[in-house]
Amino acid sequence: MKPVDFPGGLKAGMRAAVGLPTVVLLGSLTGYGALAHDTGFGGGLAVLSTILIWGLPGQIVMAEMYAAGADVLAIAIAVGMANMRFFPMAVSLMPTLGGGGLATRFAQAQLMSATSWAYVMRSSAPETPQARLGYHTGFTCVCVTVAAIATLIGYLGAAGLPKPLAMALLFINACFLLLLLLDTRGRGAAVAVITGVAAGIPINMYFPDTGLIITGLIGGTAGFLADGTRRQEEP
């Protein structure tokens, strides 16, 4: 039985997060903590960046550009480009969550990650708005907590981490995202994903800054068109 109210959703979300998402976060954020250490951030800043940026690709861009001596504004712009995906993700997530207050919405958008978004979009997630709000809250609060601890562990243990292992920890994230997207259901989403992966390669090559958003425009439209024809067939 799927939960229908906030407390039920909260428990279900926490249960969903304890498991694979926790394992992936422990691995990938340990990798980030080590990277943050090696690029010269303080431990507090490393943990703060995980909690408040809360988007690993952008965090990696930040650490690498800082290490390369880039300007503060240039780093902010590059991180903004890398994390632009949160805009369409927030647009598509918010209307499905209960709780209309603006403060609630901002909090949920701030807690949202690629993983939480993908989990809430899965067919196994609760369906009523209040239960979905609880589910996303429980899921993300566990994830942020685990990620903050993992960042600190990686930061403190950076010196003892062999290089291949450190790189494998950063690779976990790509592998997890790949399998989450393979697990996508529905023709429109499948078309959007396949188009996004295929178009993403040349587009990201020629437009390293805005490539992701162009990919989103093209793949999203392809998925929308594929889904639209299906809907007309089904009365």
Binding site: P57, M84, R85, P88, M89, V91, S92, A114, W117, A118, M121, A174, L177, L178, L181, T184, G188, A189, V191, A192, V193, I194, T195, G196, V197, A198, A199, G200, I201, I203, N204, G211, L212, I213, T215, G216, L217, I218, G219, G220, T221, A222, G223, F224, D227
Partner: peptide, 14 residues
């Protein structure tokens, strides 16, 4: 929502 899936797919190829 489809654009979000496509952006995540683009992130994956990146």
């Amino acid at each position: 929502s489809f654009a979000s899936f496509a952006v995540l797919a683009g992130l994956l190829s990146r």
